[in-house]
C-alpha cells in the first residue's frame, strides 16, 4: 500500500502554502472591496436562486 495517508512533509508544506494563499486572497478581496459585492448580492432576494428569475 503506497498511498500516503498521513500529513507528510510535502503535504504539510502544501497545507501551509494553501493557508497563506487563502488568507492572501481573502485580504486581496477585502482590499478591492469585494465584500461589498457579496453584501449587495446577498441582501437582495436572488430571483434565480428561488426559481422565478
Amino acid at each position: 500500500m503506497k498511498e500516503e495517508n498521513g500529513l507528510g512533509k510535502k503535504n504539510s508544506v502544501l497545507t501551509l502554502l494553501l493557508l497563506l494563499a487563502g488568507a492572501g486572497l481573502l485580504f486581496a478581496g477585502l482590499l478591492t472591496g469585494q465584500e461589498r459585492d457579496v453584501l449587495l448580492k446577498a441582501v437582495r432576494v436572488c430571483l434565480e436562486c428561488i426559481g422565478v428569475g
Binding site: A23, G24, L26, Q34
Partner: peptide
Amino acid sequence: SRPVKLPYYVLGFLILFGTI
C-alpha cells in the same frame, strides 16, 4: 458580472475552509 471580476474574496474563504 461584466466585466468579469476575479473572485479573490470568495476563493480566500473556500481555500481557508477547505484547508482547515
